[in-house]
Nucleic acid binder design. Structure first.
Lengths: 190, 190
DNA sequence: GATTATCTACCTACTAGTAGGTAGATGTCA
DNA sequence: TGACATCTACCTACTAGTAGGTAGATAATC
């Protein structure tokens, strides 16, 4: 994948995270990248393929980030905090998670893209679940729900926060207090 | 507003809650209602007006439901439980809240529709906040966050749960456990 | 080294199809 | 007769995608 293809994906990612799948067009991309609409088809044969590659790249980058979080924090509590800050970042740019906004449009996505989105959520939920299980076994964390449900709650909360941020003044500071509360609810009470 | 207009809104609401604003068309509505595409324009001059009316009707119905919840439960805790069950219902039909899915597409909505969506979130958050404040003052509830933040957390969680339900197997039973946990976190510990 | 062929990355010009929307005729009641 | 509701037939603007071509870099052959 060459530089132009990467640039196309970069632009597409911004467009999707702002407007969604149905509302981004080859014309939009062509304008921002500075090549003709038809030339996009040289790099990606269809909108489906482009979006499939976009989700694939996003998933890989996200997994890399999660691995990075693991490496730089031995403490599960700190890892969780850093995970939450990932979503706070998106929120502060009023951008949703790519797979979050795609999830809202699930019904109109090509099957192959749906698959990628589902995989993203499975991966992310598994990572959170494992983290919580590890933390629970060492006593760093004290989940009140089964780790799987605790992971669901965390994921739903951060995705929901990004979603409603576009329509309510759920400010960044509110996100911070909510994140603290979410953390507190699975950390051992001192 | 006559019967046909109501029927158009009914169909439109289902379409939007499944596919979103950009992906529903007059052709879809015409097919399901059984009238010609052009005839829709007799009832609603534009897509913008149709969606504006749709959001307006949804907000009014939602406020009515909230009032109904107040009337049938004196206990704030029970009211909260019923509010959560409202969102569980949507989830079990894999339908998002109308304003939830519209929020994801905020950037491409006509200004007048954006306004309605923002109003919905303001109203709903206010209702939750007032409920929590009332519960706190009578001791029925013991919020750990400022009522406003607690309301944000609840709203973000239920909206997020509906969002990710489309792409992950966050089952209804998971929602129930999460709802219980959310309730437990603002109820006095016995 | 020059010729030939192939490949890369783009272009212009077009297609079929769909979007929301409009004008004006037609039917259907009270 | 007149208001209401729906129709046919159309429009413009835009969508993803295609056909066919081109300049220039790269590789293969003589």
């Amino acid at each position: 994948m060459n530089e132009t293809a990467q640039q196309i994906l970069d632009v597409a990612q911004n467009l999707v995270r702002n407007r969604g799948y149905s509302s981004f067009s080859f014309a939009d991309i062509s304008e921002q990248v500075g090549i003709r609409k038809a030339s996009i088809h040289y790099h990606f044969s269809s909108k489906e393929e482009l979006t499939r590659e976009l989700v694939k790249r996003y998933r890989m980058a996200f997994q890399q980030t999660l691995k990075q979080i693991e490496r730089s924090n031995s403490d599960p509590q700190a890892q969780l905090r850093q995970f939450l800050s990932l979503y706070r970042q998106g929120l502060s740019q009023s951008q949703m998670c790519l797979c979050g906004i795609l999830s809202a449009e699930m019904a109109v996505l090509p099957a192959s893209v749906q698959e990628g989105v589902r995989a993203f959520f499975a991966e992310t939920q598994t990572w959170l679940q494992t983290l919580i299980e590890t933390g629970a076994s060492t006593g760093c964390l004290q989940p009140r729900l089964p780790p799987k449900d605790e992971a669901s709650l965390l994921l739903a909360s951060v995705q929901g926060a990004q979603l409603i941020a576009r329509a309510s003044e759920a400010s960044e500071s509110a996100f911070d207090r909510i994140a603290d509360q979410l953390l507190a609810s699975i950390c051992p009470t001192p």
